[in-house]
Simulated scan of single mutants.
Amino acid sequence: MSHTAHIPSHRKPRRSSSKLALRAGVAGGVLSTIAVAAATGSANAEPVTETIEMPTLTSDLSAAVAQSAEATQQVALDLELQAREDAAAAKAAKTAKVAKAEADRKAEAKKKAEAKKRAEADAKDRASRSSERTTLSASASTSNATGSAATVVAFLKAQLGDAYVMGGTGPNSWDCSGLVQAAFKTVGVDLPRVSGDQSVAGTQVGTSNLQVGDILYWGGAGSAYHVGVYIGDGKYLDAANPSKGVVIQDLSGYPASGAVRVL
């Protein structure tokens, strides 16, 4: 006998054919009953008078929905892009405004600094001219000028520092003969307008015997090209040229050709 004969088998026992037949018959009867009931119910049921149709999602509708979604997304992207551009433009405008304000501030500061510098230079120049005129006035007081000659010299010294301008007759710019004519007019002496005529307007005197108030000339008598006035101590005052203006000069540096005396 086999050594496993005493172990019970795990296989399900086979059903007999009679039991299977019985179960089949019962099942068939139940199905027949259900079929008869269904037929009877159909015969007694009310007829259906309304049909409900469910919507069908066609391919055209699907495409329209997809297109609408795409358009909505594009609008959103456009709005976002526009918002970014607006923000960038606003930032650029603000930066430009700040830069302009800073540039204007620097320009104004530079303008004020230049104006201050010019004012200081003008003040310095005026102070220098005032000091020079004071010194010259003190020097004149020690000279031998008296009466009309002193008046002429005082007028001439008051014009020191004025500009030389060809044809100028004052009050702030002169040429040589215009200055001499204006100076002698203060004492009632009417001189001709040009240098050549002024060089023969009075008594000819030698340059070695000059007096304060004598008119000095350069060039020939009657054809002189420049004139000035002797103020004493070997010096004369004239409207020299555009680079010097009205100044006092030493005769030793630029000796005159002759002189005339009108006072």
Rank of each mutant, 00 (worst) to 15 (best):
A39T: 13
R84H: 09
S16Q: 10
S62E: 11
K111L: 15
K100Q: 14
D104A: 07
A259M: 03
G25F: 09
Q67N: 14
R118S: 11
G258F: 09
K235N: 07
S137F: 05
A150H: 08
A107D: 13
Q211A: 14
V229I: 11
E102N: 08
H226M: 05
A90W: 03
G206H: 02
S62C: 08
G253L: 04
L79N: 07
M1I: 15
G258T: 04
Y164M: 01
A76V: 07
D197A: 15
G196H: 05
T151R: 03
A182D: 00
S59Q: 10
S223Q: 14
G188A: 01
L61T: 07
G168F: 04
A103D: 04
A39W: 03
L251G: 07
P13S: 09
D238Q: 05
K100I: 11
S68Q: 14
V180D: 00
S139F: 01
A63R: 05
S223L: 09
V30M: 11
N172K: 08
D104M: 07
S62I: 12
V247Q: 04
A87Q: 12
A5T: 13
R84D: 13
A221S: 00
S208I: 12
E46P: 03
V189N: 01
R11P: 05
A27N: 09
G245H: 02
V212G: 05
A21S: 14
A88L: 12
E132R: 08
V36S: 10
R261K: 05
E108Q: 13
G202A: 02
T56F: 09
A145K: 03
A87T: 13
E70N: 10
D78Q: 05
R84Q: 13
S16T: 13
L210E: 04
E108D: 14
K112F: 08
R84L: 14
P13M: 10
L77M: 06
Y254A: 10
S32I: 13
A24H: 12
L251A: 01
G29L: 15
C176S: 00
R105C: 04
V48P: 09
Y225T: 15
A92N: 08
K19V: 13
S128N: 11
A38P: 08
V229W: 00
A201Q: 08
S131V: 04
N44T: 15
K157Q: 09
G213W: 06
G253H: 05
A90L: 10
